[in-house]
Measured scan of single mutants.
Amino acid sequence: MGFKLLSKLLVYLTASIMAIASPLAFSVDSSGEYPTVSEIPVGEVRLYQIADGVWSHIATQSFDGAVYPSNGLIVRDGDELLLIDTAWGAKNTAALLAEIEKQIGLPVTRAVSTHFHDDRVGGVDVLRAAGVATYASPSTRRLAEVEGNEIPTHSLEGLSSSGDAVRFGPVELFYPGAAHSTDNLIVYVPSASVLYGGCAIYELSRTSAGNVADADLAEWPTSIERIQQHYPEAQFVIPGHGLPGGLDLLKHTTNVVKAHTNRSVVE
């Protein structure tokens, strides 16, 4: 069995187990497998329904001669939608809004960016022009300005110390501490036991640490421990890039980060 097929099978099995364990909360999309990078042309966006009122959005972007996937989250909030992270750029984010209108038909009224990198804030200006209120932590807003990236308009308070959590509509926002970046936030959907790890969490097929220019490698494993301790009931975990899975993604990420750190020390 090929690795790609095995990865998709694991996603399907995880979703099936969740649907059985929580039949009222989960209505997993039966329309197909989780979209992969090879299936999404740059400039297009796919939506994948995880649970009743919960979707991931998947886009792709060219970077350094390669094409990478990027995940975000959409959560229903009454007759409105909360968006977590842009679709990595203005063109993708405009396509995301169009796809949401086509498939869901509810307005996106608020959006949260989970850290300051372009795959999370690139497209904020498109959201703002569409009347979406954009939010991020003060740290993310400051770092985005320093980096020359787009800056969300509103500040999220109460997320300055490791372990801080605040309720934001249908989700809980959690600051686990520094990891992929010093400002990275985690998003949890309690009604569906869905954990969105953003770039602080890796997919299972990833074996290298990737972009760690703004990471705190020493603190990252401790931050992941905080996530595990705060959300032990999480059933569906979405990484910032690639295929979702279960809580095993947290341990896998820790292993990859520690291996990278150990290699760096040896070198």
Rank of each mutant, 00 (worst) to 15 (best):
T222C: 05
L83Q: 01
I104D: 01
D29V: 09
T254S: 10
Y48H: 12
T86E: 00
I186Y: 01
P107H: 09
G131E: 08
G122N: 11
P232C: 07
R226H: 06
S16N: 05
P69A: 14
K258N: 13
T182N: 13
V42Q: 11
L185Y: 02
Y175A: 02
A178R: 11
S264L: 10
G65Y: 06
V166A: 08
W55P: 03
E157T: 12
H230K: 14
H241D: 04
V28N: 10
A111F: 06
V108H: 00
L195P: 05
L156Y: 01
V265P: 10
Y188C: 03
G246T: 12
L24G: 10
V256G: 01
P152I: 03
L217A: 06
V11W: 06
S70D: 00
D248V: 10
V126G: 04
L106Y: 15
L243K: 13
A192N: 07
L6P: 08
D64E: 07
G105R: 10
S181E: 01
A144E: 03
A129V: 10
I224T: 05
V108Q: 00
A192Y: 07
V108F: 01
A21L: 13
G148W: 05
H117E: 00
V257Q: 02
A94I: 14
E150T: 02
A218Y: 11
T134F: 01
S56A: 15
A144C: 12
P176V: 01
D52T: 11
D164M: 13
G242C: 06
L250P: 04
I40W: 15
W88E: 00
I20Q: 15
W88G: 00
I151L: 08
T261D: 10
G123W: 04
T153M: 10
E172F: 05
D214C: 05
V121L: 05
A15L: 10
V171P: 02
T36F: 08
S31E: 08
V194N: 02
D29G: 10
L195W: 00
G240C: 01
R142P: 04
E145Q: 13
V256R: 04
S160I: 11
G242W: 05
T60S: 12
A19E: 15
T261G: 11
V67A: 15
A94F: 13
L243C: 08
L10W: 06
E145S: 14
I224R: 01
G72V: 01
R120E: 01
T114I: 01
V37L: 14
R263V: 13
D125R: 07
N184E: 00
V171C: 02
T114F: 04
S193L: 14
A215D: 06
